[in-house]
Amino acid sequence: MDKNTEAIKSMQDNKLKEAAKLFEEVIQENPDDPVGYINFGNLLEHVHEYEKAERFYKKALELDPNAATAYYGLGGLYFDQSAYQKAQENFQQAIRLGLEEADVYYMLGMTFQKQSQFKLSLPYLQRAAELHENDEEILFQYGLSLAQMNQLHDAKAVFEKVLMQNNQHSDAHYNLGVIALYEDCATDALAHFNAALRAQPDHILAANGKKKVEMYLKENNG
Results as ranks from 00 to 15, higher is better:
Glu54Thr: 12
Asp64Gln: 09
Tyr37Ile: 05
Leu77Ser: 00
Leu77Trp: 09
Val35Gln: 14
Lys86Met: 07
Tyr37Arg: 03
Lys86Trp: 06
Asn39Gly: 09
His48Asn: 15
Gly36Arg: 00
Gln28Ile: 10
Ala87Val: 09
Glu54Ile: 09
Gln81Lys: 13
Glu51Ala: 15
Gly36Glu: 00
Glu29Ser: 12
Lys58Glu: 11
Asn30Asp: 10
Tyr71Arg: 12
His48Gly: 13
Gly76Ile: 06
Val47Ser: 04
Asp33Thr: 02
Ala68Phe: 11
Ala70Glu: 00
Asp32Gln: 14
Gln85Leu: 08
Glu51Ser: 13
Leu61Ile: 07
Lys58Met: 11
Glu29Arg: 14
Phe40Gln: 07
Ala67Pro: 05
Glu45Met: 13
Ala70Ile: 04
Ser82Leu: 11
Leu63His: 06
Ala53Thr: 03
Asp80Ser: 15
Glu29Pro: 08
Tyr71Cys: 03
Ala87His: 03
Tyr57Trp: 12
Tyr72Glu: 02
Tyr72Cys: 04
Ala70Val: 01
Thr69Asn: 12
Phe79Glu: 13
Ala87Arg: 01
Leu61Ala: 09
Gly76Ser: 12
Asp32Pro: 08
Leu61Gly: 05
Ala68Tyr: 08
His46Ile: 08
Leu43Thr: 02
Pro65Arg: 13
Ala67Tyr: 02
Asn42Phe: 08
Arg55Ser: 14
Leu77Met: 15
Asn42Met: 06
His48Trp: 14
Leu43Cys: 04
Ala68Ile: 07
Phe79Thr: 03
Lys86Ile: 07
Leu77Lys: 03
Leu43Met: 01
Pro34Ala: 02
Val47His: 09
Gln85Asn: 14
Gly41Phe: 02
Glu54Met: 12
Asp80Tyr: 06
Asp64Val: 04
Ile38Ser: 10
Leu77Asp: 00
Ile38Trp: 01
Glu62Asp: 13
Phe40Asp: 02
Tyr37Glu: 04
Glu51Gly: 13
Ala83Gly: 04
His48Lys: 15
Val35Thr: 14
Tyr71Asp: 10
Gln85His: 12
Tyr84Cys: 01
Arg55Val: 12
Ala68Lys: 14
Asn66Val: 04
Leu77Glu: 04
Glu45Trp: 13
Tyr37Met: 10
Gln81Phe: 08
Ile38Glu: 11
Asp64Pro: 05
Phe79Gln: 02
Leu61Lys: 11
Asp64Arg: 05
Phe40Ala: 10
Ala68Asn: 10
Tyr71His: 15
Asn42Trp: 02
Leu44Ile: 08
Asn66Lys: 12
Ala68Glu: 11
Lys58Asp: 05
Leu77Cys: 11
Gln88Trp: 01
Gly76Glu: 05
Gly75Glu: 06
Pro65Asp: 02
Ala70Asp: 03
Tyr57Cys: 11
Val47Ile: 15
Pro31Val: 03
Gln88Val: 07
Asn30Ala: 14
Pro31Gly: 13
Thr69Cys: 02
Leu74Glu: 05
Ala83Trp: 10
His48Ala: 15
Lys58Val: 05
Ala70Arg: 00
Leu74His: 06
Lys59Ser: 06
Leu61Trp: 08
Leu63Ser: 04
Asp80Gly: 12
Asp80Cys: 08
Tyr72His: 12
Glu89Ala: 14
Lys52Leu: 04
Phe40Tyr: 15
Tyr72Asp: 11
Tyr50Pro: 02
